[in-house]
Amino acid sequence: MGMTRLPPEIRPVLENGTPAVMVTCSADGKPNTTVISQVYYVDETHAALSFQFFSKTIRNVRENPRAYVCVFDIRGQAHWVLHLKFERSETEGPIFDAMDMQIEAIASMTGMSGIFKLRAADVYRVLSVEKLPFSRWAAADLHGSGR
């Protein structure tokens, strides 16, 4: 079976610091969801997620390496759904340094300076990737009748 590769069009979405959510599952079968501030493009077959203070998520992927990530591309009107498998954690080196710098930039843009702190860069293999366009809805509803 061939390796899943991240398509080139996802790279600018990830590099824009787009928010994402992550779902993991403990060994005893309890799912856990969390918002993540960064999905880092490592190479065509790997992505890295920041380990900051999501202790349950971190525990879960070390018990059960499977993870689900959904990246929201608001400008592109699409979700990117990634199924991942945890491979390793890095606390130094080029991936860690690049993520650390990106996290500081995101923290500063979102008023979270001093709160976001990278403890490790967790590197995952991409098992699958899927682009799901936003579903259509009537824009007129946005200005609906005084509700």
């Binding site: 779902v23 599952c25 079968g29 856990n32 969801t33 918002v35 689900y68 959904c70 979700h79």
Partner: peptide, 16 residues
């Protein structure tokens, strides 16, 4: 908001 579930093989899934 976002929901998380898992299947019988403990593979997590997400649902907007």
């Amino acid at each position: 908001a976002f929901a998380g579930t898992r299947n019988r093989d403990l593979v997590p899934h997400g649902h907007k």
